[in-house]
Amino acid sequence: IGSLMYASIFGNVSAIIQRLYSGTARYHTQMLRVREFIRFHQIPNPLRQRLEEYFQHAWSYTNGIDMNAVLKGFPECLQADICLHLNRSLLQHCKPFRGATKGCLRALAMKFKTTHAPPGDTLVHAGDLLTALYFISRGSIEILRGDVVVAILGKNDIFGEPLNLYARPGKSNGDVRALTYCDLHKIHRDDLLEVLDMYPEFSDHFWSSLEITFNLRDTNMIPGSPGSTELEGGFSRQRKRKLSFRRRTDKDTEQPGEVSALGPGRAGAGPSSRGRPGGPWGESPSSGPSSPESSEDEGPGRSSSPLRLVPFSSPRPPGEPPGGEPLMEDCEKSSDTCNPLSGAFSGVSNIFSFWGDSRGRQYQELPRCPAPTPSLLNIPLSSPGRRPRGDVESRLDALQRQLNRLETRLSADMATVLQLLQRQMTLVPPAYSAVTTPGPGPTSTSPLLPVSPLPTLTLDSLSQVSQFMACEELPPGAPELPQEGPTRRLSLPGQLGALTSQPLHRHGSDPG
């Protein structure tokens, strides 16, 4: 009997000691992992102490058991019943959930998450997105703005933001810190809205009876308010094209079509300037034949640059190039080494500058006005007194259609001029006259002087055409309008007829 009692007592005591040691061994194993994590990542002392304290409290609170892992091991129907039991206190005593059906309560219970916070733990920081609604079931918390405590909340209090009033989550206007050990039930806004969409009859009752104890939403960050730039940057990543407008005076608003859609830094370009900076079609017209890549860069430059609305530039004389043409100036200075066709295309550029300027006046029909002061630039669209967005969009579309028509007509005119030049060069190729044979009589004449090349004649003739079109064909006081194609086609051969009437002889060394 004594040996039996000794064996039973010894066996029970050893089993008890073994169970104690097993729990202690698990605790030390998990604690060792936490300390190894702290050492590996070199976490500083204040945060390291918070980690160790939280682990110790969580171990004593749950005995080292992962409740979520245990809950996920059950089937979904059983999980709903378990969640309904775990959140029964909240669902029974909170006013917004009263009167809900059994199915609605089960769906809500599945969406709730339980959070346990030790003292000093910050649940929400200032500036964080308010993605959830919090219900306090135990403990107390404090809300701070800077170093000032603005509120202390306790059991059955609710904090967050009214989700039904805002389409997008706002930002917190303060820090939420736990004063004691707290148990909180939180539900994400997407989950709550999903359940309320499934039960629309409960939705009206819920929003009407929901009383948020403390609204954390920062009202200064609401979209459309003066301080909402940061919020707009976070939620409006896919922005449309940006529009900046110059201020319109009362006198300017009476004149229709007073602005032109141009790229940034293009205030001095012609009315047909689009795409790359520098001139019509993204580059100076005089350098068009020598740089074919300008047409390839036109599309990307047009689509990537934001639109700006600026006044037209001052008018340019008909014979003056659009500006920024070092290529043609070098050719004029060193005409001995340049291609003979460069002079002809220089005359073509003069005609283009004249036609572009006159067509700009035809479509816009307003006098040039000086540029406004820099303080009046970049007025935002949302400022008071601005035109409605639809009106601005319609004006932009009208300007775009005008620019497209202008570009089409300029292309047709350019093709006409090039065809005339090619026809003239085919009839009378460039050549130098040879020395004529002296006559049989004693009164022999001296050799004839060489005839100037055709490109120079073409430049003079085209300059005469531009001056003739600019000065004589337009009646005084009438708006400057571009001439039609047949009129220009008839004027060019008439001007060139006198020049080509002389018999030109080919030089023996000319390969053409």
Rank of each mutant, 00 (worst) to 15 (best):
T213K: 03
V259Y: 10
P280Q: 04
N164K: 08
V150I: 12
D175S: 07
R395H: 08
H205C: 10
L459M: 11
A478P: 10
E407M: 06
S349V: 03
R361F: 14
D397H: 04
F352D: 01
E201G: 06
L153D: 01
L163Q: 08
F468Y: 13
S353F: 01
L210N: 03
P264E: 10
G282Y: 05
P440I: 05
A470Q: 08
H188M: 06
T445F: 07
M328S: 12
V451W: 11
K171C: 12
R401A: 06
L192M: 08
E161I: 01
D330K: 08
T249P: 10
L381Q: 15
A478K: 12
P370Q: 10
D204Y: 08
G139M: 02
N350K: 15
R401N: 15
V428I: 11
I141V: 10
Y432D: 08
T437E: 12
L496N: 08
S353I: 03
L377V: 11
F312R: 14
S273W: 15
P226F: 11
L165N: 08
G347P: 04
M221E: 12
D175R: 07
F352N: 12
K242F: 07
L193R: 08
L410Y: 03
T373E: 09
D330S: 07
L496W: 10
R361H: 15
D510G: 08
F214A: 05
A344T: 13
P475W: 04
P482N: 14
L243E: 12
R389E: 11
S463V: 12
G347Y: 09
R361D: 07
L418V: 14
L366Q: 10
L366T: 10
T337K: 06
S463H: 14
A267T: 12
P450K: 09
T373R: 09
D336L: 06
V195H: 03
V149C: 08
M469H: 12
C338H: 14
G127N: 06
G347S: 13
R308P: 10
R138T: 11
F468M: 07
A434S: 09
G494L: 12
E194C: 09
F159I: 09
E407I: 06
A398Q: 13
H188N: 12
L406A: 08
M414I: 13
A132P: 02
R316G: 15
V435F: 09
E332S: 08
G234C: 12
L420N: 06
L377T: 10
L459I: 10
G234T: 11
T416P: 04
L144R: 11
L420R: 07
R138N: 13
P370I: 09
F468H: 14
I141R: 01
P438G: 10
A151F: 01
P503S: 11
P306E: 15
T437C: 13
P476R: 13
L396R: 05
P370D: 10
L231A: 11
M414L: 13
V428Q: 14
R168Y: 08
Q362W: 03
N164L: 04
L130D: 03
P289D: 01
P482C: 10
R138L: 04
E142I: 05
G257D: 07
C471L: 05
P475K: 07
S209V: 10
D250I: 15
S284E: 12
S411Q: 15
Y134P: 01
G494S: 10
L144A: 07
L377N: 09
L184Q: 01
S509V: 10
L449A: 09
D197I: 08
M414W: 05
S342P: 07
R361K: 03
R266L: 12
M328I: 13
F312P: 15
L454S: 09
I136S: 01
L499E: 10
G265R: 12
I222M: 04
T437H: 06
R145W: 05
P326L: 12
E254K: 07
K251M: 10
A261C: 13
S463W: 10
V428H: 11
P264K: 14
R145T: 07
F345S: 06
D204A: 15
K155W: 01
E201H: 04
G508S: 08
P374L: 09
Y199K: 02
P271E: 06
L399T: 03
R308H: 13
N339S: 09
P292S: 13
S375I: 04
A470E: 11
R274Q: 10
Y181V: 04
I187S: 01
N339H: 14
L481K: 11
R409Q: 08
T436R: 10
L474M: 04
D297W: 12
L457A: 09
V150A: 06
S335Q: 09
G224C: 08
V465L: 11
N156M: 05
A151R: 04
V195Q: 01
L262G: 10
V259E: 13
S509H: 11
A415L: 05
A132Y: 09
R359C: 04
P169D: 01
I187R: 02
L309M: 15
A261F: 10
S209N: 15
L427M: 08
G270E: 12
E393Q: 03
K242P: 10
P340D: 11
S305C: 07
L193Y: 07
P256F: 07
L193T: 06
F206V: 03
P285V: 10
P384Y: 15
G233Q: 09
Y199G: 03
G477H: 13
C182Y: 01
S358I: 05
L499R: 12
F468T: 07
S358A: 10
P162G: 03
E296L: 15
L196T: 05
S172M: 02
I143C: 04
R274M: 05
D357H: 14
S452L: 11
I222Y: 06
L457F: 10
E211V: 09
S272C: 05
E258N: 12
L376F: 09
E142F: 01
A167S: 10
P285A: 15
S446V: 12
G170P: 01
D157P: 01
E393V: 13
N173H: 12
D191K: 01
Y134R: 02
V451D: 05
L377W: 11
P226Q: 14
A178S: 10
T219R: 11
S335A: 04
C471D: 12
M425Q: 05
G282R: 05
Q238S: 11
D175Q: 15
E194L: 06
D183R: 10
L144G: 07
R145G: 02
S382P: 12
G360H: 14
S287I: 01
R316L: 13
P318G: 15
L459W: 13
S358N: 07
L381H: 08
Q364K: 05
D128P: 02
S273L: 12
D252P: 13
D190M: 05
R361I: 12
S446T: 11
L216D: 01
E325F: 10
K171Y: 09
S290P: 15
Q464C: 12
E325A: 11
S273H: 13
N156G: 08
E296S: 12
P475S: 12
E472T: 06
S172W: 01
G270P: 06
P162K: 07
V148F: 10
T180F: 02
N173C: 12
P430I: 15
R316P: 15
I212E: 01
K186C: 13
G263L: 10
M414Y: 04
R302G: 11
S375M: 08
L196I: 07
S394F: 07
V392I: 15
S342N: 11
